[in-house]
Design a protein around this nucleic acid. Structure first.
Length: 330
DNA sequence: CGTACCTTTGTCAATGCCTG
DNA sequence: CAGGCATTGACAAAGGTACG
């Protein structure tokens, strides 16, 4: 799979379209038809559009320029970095501000490499959404950016705003990685170091998307709580799902939802403190250890460690002797 | 097999926030 | 304002992997 295909698949997913199956080529005719219809059907309009495109091309190649662009000509960024929230008072305030004073700060876009006359947003999506809502054109700086520059610009802008929560950064990092970006590019985009990036990605990998979306951005929660959630999910994913499906769960705010899951899981762990999971060094959950009164039961998962139980059975005498020797030394 | 590089994990200190 | 707690950035070491 080429980089372009990978990036496209991310883009398609972001646009709420089914993820394309591997190896399926995009139909170039459909792309062309879309671009043409966007420019208008009549010859007059097409000529005018061609002239406008020429002017734009000259401006773009001379560096960058601030243009007024119809929001529908701007597609979403390759990589989504925000978890949508139902109510957003700040967004309403932004809409009101732009309605009253106009758009003060331009957004950053690049020309869509595949669709003439179209743009891809690097940052300023809230301003874009606000302009679209108001039916206004949006002021945009147009720059020729590489894929890497695009995501780095997007990341930098978000960090300037300092309102991406831990999990939003984690998702952003994870999506960049899935899109095939090198670690150093992701590190630059998130202004982080390799150690933290590793943690971001492991959290985004460790918690299912459905769980993250159900909980939301949890702006007050940092690394520790999300790492705790990774543990909780890996030990009993079904229990976590049951908690997030609870009716009352949706009534809480995002931070409270995360807290609810963690406290319920902690309570559950405390209750069955006698039960534990044995994991192999590769992290496979290979056995369940249950203690009750005078008995201890170890249940091996044959799918994870096939034939290990048989092997262990044949060595019980040996192990018991070893155990006796160790105990007598103490 | 040894080496170099990359990733993951553990840990600590600084900072900020909250509560009494 | 002090103390406790959570968050965050940074460093070091361990673990994993690719390559010669």
């Amino acid at each position: 799979m080429s980089r372009r295909d990978t990036v496209n698949s991310i883009f398609m997913r972001k646009a709420d379209m089914p993820a394309p199956s591997v190896g399926v080529e995009k139909n170039p005719d459909r792309v062309r038809a879309g671009a043409v219809s966007a420019m208008g059907a009549s010859l007059q309009e097409m000529t005018e559009a061609a002239r406008a495109a020429g002017r734009l091309q000259a401006q773009i190649s001379s560096g960058f320029s601030v243009l007024e662009i119809t929001p529908s000509d701007i597609s979403n960024s390759l990589i989504s970095d925000r978890i949508p929230v139902e109510r957003d008072a700040e967004f309403d305030a932004l809409v009101a501000s732009i309605a009253e004073h106009g758009q003060k700060v331009p957004i950053l876009v690049r020309p869509d490499p595949e669709k003439e006359g179209q743009y891809q947003i690097a940052y300023g999506r809230r301003r874009l959404r606000a302009a679209a809502k108001l039916g206004l054109k949006v002021k945009a700086i147009v720059q020729n950016l590489s894929d890497n520059e695009l995501v780095i610009a997007q990341g930098k802008e978000n960090l300037d705003r300092q309102d991406l929560s831990f999990i939003e950064k984690a998702l952003f990092a994870h999506r960049l990685e899935e899109a095939g970006y090198a670690r150093d590019v992701i590190i630059a985009a998130l202004s982080t170091d390799k150690a933290d990036l590793s943690r971001y990605i492991s959290v985004a990998r460790g918690v299912p998307q459905t769980v993250i979306m159900a909980i939301g951005p949890a702006p007050k929660a940092g690394r520790a709580r999300w790492l705790a959630l990774v543990d909780a999910v890996s030990s009993s994913p079904k229990k976590v799902e049951a908690i997030i499906e609870d009716d009352a769960f949706a009534d809480l705010d995002s931070d409270q939802r995360l807290q609810r899951v963690l406290s319920k899981m902690a309570a559950r762990d405390a209750k069955k403190a006698t039960g534990e999971t044995w994991k192999t060094r590769q992290g496979q959950k290979a056995a369940q250890i249950e203690r009750s009164g005078t008995k201890t039961r170890i249940t091996f998962d044959e799918r994870m460690v096939p034939e290990f139980a048989d092997y262990l059975t044949t060595r019980l005498d040996e192990l018991f002797e070893e155990f006796g020797a160790v105990r007598s030394q103490r």
